[in-house]
Write a protein that binds this DNA or RNA. Structure first.
Length: 161
DNA sequence: GCCAACGTTGGC
DNA sequence: GCCAACGTTGGC
């Protein structure tokens, strides 16, 4: 069991969009970075848990939790000539791009914002907070996961009084 | 294999 | 909208 953080711009695909899917799940397609592709193809497994992060948002932050329901498999969109993610250089017999399927578990309400994450000394080494970090699929350590989900519960209790 | 040019990401 | 940081491309 491992932990990950997936970035998405809410304007293109939000956590609400994921929750609105018929089975609350989607194939995580459109990743066009080889480091992230390798994680999708080789490393991410069924049952792994995922922070759903909104980038280019106001504010950016973790807005939900999802889980992996299907491990890495070739990304169909890359072979679909009509699709935005079509890649004519990708050979179906040796696919370039991979996806996993994730399913919404629950929203994080209120979201845990980027400034909030930055304010926590224990998270100083987190990939997301690294200067210049752009990886859209990135590992999260068990300690980071535990700490952040703990924050989510705390803020939820506060909200409920 | 080097590296400049270019495109993208994503916080601010 | 700006721009720093990064990845990719392509000329040489």
């Amino acid at each position: 069991m491992a932990y990950w953080l997936f970035k998405s711009e809410p304007e293109s695909y939000s956590f609400a969009d994921l929750q609105a899917e018929p089975d609350r799940s989607t194939g995580w397609d459109g990743v066009r970075n080889y480091q992230a592709r390798n994680l999708l193809r080789d490393t991410i497994k069924v049952g792994d848990q995922v922070f759903f992060y909104h980038s280019n948002a106001e504010p950016p932050g973790i807005v939900g939790i999802a889980k992996v329901v299907q491990a890495g498999h070739p990304e169909p969109a890359a072979f679909d000539a009509g699709h935005h993610y079509f890649d004519e250089k990708s050979d179906p017999s040796n696919p370039t791009w991979y996806q996993v399927r994730i399913q919404a578990v629950n929203p994080v309400e209120p979201p845990i914002t980027l400034p909030e994450l930055r304010s926590i000394p224990e998270l100083a080494g987190m990939e997301l907070l690294r200067k210049g970090s752009r990886l859209s699929v990135q590992p999260v350590t068990a300690a980071e996961w535990k700490l952040i989900t703990g924050l989510a519960k705390t803020s939820k209790k506060k909200k409920q009084g």
